[in-house]
Each structure stands twice: as C-alpha cells, then as structure tokens.
Simulated assay, not measured.
Amino acid sequence: MAKDNFYHRVYEVARQIPYGRVTSYGAIAKAIGAAKSARMVGYAMNGASALEDVPAHRVVNRNGLLTGKHHFPGTHLMQQLLESEGIEVEGDKVQDFKALFWDPKSDSKK
C-alpha cells in the first residue's frame, strides 16, 4: 500500500510536467518529500509509460540522459515522443537540458 501511495504521488507530479519540458527522477523525489528516493521514482516511472495520462517520456536522469528508454515499446519511442514536442535528443541525451529542465518543487501547482 505504501508503494502504491508513493507511485501515485510520483505520477501526480509527472502529470504536471509542461509540454516541451523535462524533469529528473531526483527532482520528482524532492518534490514529493523523498529526496533520496530518485531510484524509486525510476521504478515508478518504469510502469508509467503504459499509462496514457502520465508523460513518462519527459522524465530523464539528472544529466538529461534517456535512461528509461528501454521501458517504452518500440526502438526509439521515448526519443520520438520528446522530439515531437520540439526537444532535441542526440546520443540518448536531451540537448539544452538546463534550459528545458522543469523543477516541480518551484513550479508545482501545489
């Protein structure tokens, strides 16, 4: 039950990521008050690619790498989804990551 609640909180933050922006596992962890749980956020996001209302493709690692790409169906779906939003990806890395980074702790609706 606690895991379900954690995942629910992760998904709530992920749903707020603006179109054309990205955030990191660690930023989501901090936003939900679990700063040392970036890896758990990653586990939550692994299953989120199947949820239509959670833009899991917008969550990358702290360096802008598409570390979760293997959890999307198809060969390059995560990259394709990001590029469809105008986000440039080269070598599995978001280009201009700092400019595109969305901080849920400071920009959250909460």
Rank of each mutant, 00 (worst) to 15 (best):
M78N: 06
G68Q: 10
P55H: 12
L51K: 10
A48Y: 07
E83T: 06
K30V: 09
A48G: 08
L77A: 12
G86M: 11
R15H: 03
V60M: 07
R15G: 01
A14S: 07
L51C: 14
L100I: 03
A35L: 03
V22A: 05
D103W: 01
L82A: 10
H70E: 15
G42Y: 02
L100V: 04
E90D: 13
T67D: 15
T67K: 11
G42E: 02
T23M: 10
W102E: 04
Q80T: 12
P18V: 08
T23Q: 01
G64C: 12
I17D: 07
R15T: 00
A48D: 07
W102A: 01
Q80F: 08
P104I: 01
T23N: 05
S37L: 05
S84A: 13
I32W: 03
G33F: 07
P73T: 13
H70M: 10
V41S: 07
G86V: 01
L81M: 14
P55L: 09
A27T: 05
L82H: 09
G74Q: 13
P104F: 00
V94G: 04
G74E: 13
R21S: 01
I28V: 10
R9W: 13
L100S: 05
S37N: 13
N63M: 06
R9K: 15
M40G: 09
S37M: 13
A48L: 07
F101G: 01
E88P: 07
I28P: 08
G42L: 02
R62P: 01
E83R: 07
H8T: 14
N46D: 14
M40D: 15
Q79G: 04
F72T: 03
G74L: 06
H71K: 06
V22T: 02
K36W: 14
A38C: 01
I28A: 08
I17P: 10
Q16F: 00
H70W: 09
F101M: 11
A44D: 11
V13T: 00
E83I: 02
P55F: 13
V60Y: 03
L81C: 07
E12S: 11
V59W: 09
K36F: 13
F97K: 01
S84V: 10
I28F: 08
G91W: 08
V41H: 08
A38Y: 05
S24F: 03
L100P: 12
I32K: 03
K98W: 07
L81H: 09
L65M: 07
T67Y: 08
G86Y: 10
I32G: 10
R39M: 13
L66V: 08
G91M: 03
R15A: 02
L100C: 11
H76T: 05
G33E: 11
K69Y: 08
V94F: 06
K30Y: 09
Y43V: 11
